[in-house]
C-alpha cells in the first residue's frame, strides 16, 4: 500500500497493463519521451520502449483512426486526447466509429480502445481545456464513460478500462490530479465499470455526483452533518452506463435526492439521473430531485471560474431546500 496522487495511480495502472499485455500500446501528443503534459506517462517510454509508448503527429482525428486500426490488427490501444475540449476534432472517430465497430460488424470486430483525456475546472486553464463534455459521449451508444475521483478508483477503473474489449472514455479531472493523496494498493486490482460507490453513508438525502463534485458534495455533507442532516454521497464513477441499482436503493432509503455536476445544466448526465429516479422511485420521493450544475453559458473565462463553477456551498443550499421542501 502506498500513498499516491491520482496522477501517480493513473501512471501505475498504465505501467501494470503495459507489463501484463504486450498488445497494450500508449500514444498521443507528447506522451512519449516527454512523459505527457501532466507527466501521466512519465518514464513509460523509457521502461517499455518507443514501440509501445510513442508520440503522434498533432491531429486528434488521426489519433482516433490510428487507435481503431491498431485495435483491428490485434492491439489494445490507450490513446490520449491532450485536453478533452479537443474531442470535437475526433468526434467521428470516437462517436461515429469506434463506438459502433462491434455493432456494424455484427459482432465480428471490436475496438478495445481506452481514450484518456484530462478535463475539469478550477485550475485557470486557457479556452477549451476544462469543458465538461462527458454528456456528449454518454449519449453515444456503444461506449462507456468513466470518471474517477480518487487515486484508488483511478487505478482500478483504468485497469478495467484497458482490459475492456469495448471502447472506454476515461476522463481525468485536472484539479484532482495532485490535490490530495490516497491509499493505493501496490498489487493490481480492478473496479468494475458501471458500478457506483457510496463515498459517505447517510439516511436523509442522496447526493449523486461524479468527478471533482464528489469532493464538493462530501464537504457539503460535513456541513449538513453539523445540523444533524445525514447525506449519503454516491460517486457514480461511471457516468455511462449508470449504476441505477445503487442510486435507486439509496433513494428508497433516504426519500430525497439531488444530482450534482460541474457541467452546465443543459449538459452532463444529471438530467438522465434525475429522470431515472423519477421513473423508478417517484413514490419514495418526499421532494423533487434537485440539480446543481453550472450556468448554461460557454465555459467561464479563467478569471471568473471560481464564481461560475458549482461548489460545496451551492450543494449545501440545495440540500437544505430539498430537505425543507
Amino acid at each position: 500500500m502506498a500513498e499516491m496522487t491520482m496522477i501517480q495511480a493513473i501512471t501505475e495502472a498504465m505501467r501494470t497493463e503495459l507489463k501484463n499485455d504486450e498488445n497494450v500500446l500508449l500514444f498521443g501528443e507528447d506522451v512519449g519521451h516527454y512523459g505527457g503534459v501532466f507527466r501521466a506517462t512519465s518514464g513509460l517510454q523509457e521502461e517499455f520502449g518507443e514501440d509501445r509508448v510513442f508520440d503522434t503527429p498533432l491531429a486528434e482525428s488521426g489519433i482516433g483512426g490510428l487507435a481503431i486500426g491498431l485495435g483491428l490488427t490485434g492491439f489494445r490501444p490507450i490513446m490520449e486526447i491532450q485536453f478533452f475540449g479537443f474531442l470535437f476534432e475526433v468526434m467521428d472517430g470516437v462517436a461515429g466509429q469506434m463506438s459502433r465497430t462491434h455493432y456494424r460488424s455484427g459482432g465480428h470486430y471490436s475496438s478495445p480502445v481506452t481514450i484518456r483525456a484530462p478535463f475539469g475546472g478550477g485550475v485557470k486553464t486557457p479556452e477549451l481545456h476544462s469543458d465538461s463534455l462527458e454528456g456528449l459521449i454518454a449519449q453515444t451508444p456503444g461506449i462507456s464513460v468513466v470518471i474517477p475521483s480518487t487515486p484508488y478508483d483511478a487505478k482500478g477503473l483504468l485497469i478495467s478500462a484497458i482490459r475492456s474489449n469495448d471502447p472506454v472514455v476515461f476522463l481525468e479531472h485536472m484539479k484532482l490530479y495532485r490535490s490530495f493523496k490516497g491509499e493505493v494498493p501496490d498489487e493490481e486490482y480492478t473496479i468494475e465499470i458501471g458500478k457506483a460507490d457510496i463515498k459517505r453513508e447517510g439516511t436523509d438525502i442522496t447526493i449523486v455526483s461524479y468527478g471533482a463534485m464528489v469532493h464538493e458534495a462530501l464537504k457539503a455533507a460535513d456541513k449538513l452533518a453539523e445540523e444533524d442532516i445525514n447525506a449519503e454521497v454516491i460517486d457514480l464513477r461511471t457516468v455511462s452506463p449508470l449504476d441505477l441499482e445503487t442510486i435507486i436503493e439509496s433513494v428508497k432509503k433516504t426519500n430525497r435526492a439531488m444530482v450534482v455536476q460541474e457541467a452546465q445544466r443543459q449538459a452532463g448526465v444529471a438530467a438522465t439521473v434525475s429522470a431515472e429516479i423519477s421513473e423508478r422511485a417517484i413514490l419514495h420521493l418526499e421532494a423533487p430531485v434537485g440539480r446543481i450544475a453550472a450556468p448554461d453559458t460557454v465555459y467561464a473565462f479563467a478569471s471568473d471560474e471560481d464564481a461560475w463553477l458549482p461548489n460545496a456551498e451551492d450543494i449545501y443550499e440545495k440540500a437544505k431546500e430539498t430537505i425543507e421542501f
Binding site: 488521426g62 483512426g65 481503431i68 486500426g69 491498431l70 485495435g71 460488424s105 465480428h108 470486430y109
Partner: peptide
C-alpha cells in the same frame, strides 16, 4: 460480418476509412 477476410465494412463517413487505414498499416 466479415469472417475470414481482412476487410472493413464499407465506410459511409467519407475520409474515416483513411485514418483507420493508417492505423491498420501501423499495426
Amino acid at each position: 460480418q466479415m469472417e475470414g477476410i481482412n476487410v472493413l465494412m464499407p465506410q459511409i463517413i467519407i475520409g474515416a476509412q483513411i485514418v483507420q487505414a493508417a492505423g491498420i498499416a501501423l499495426g
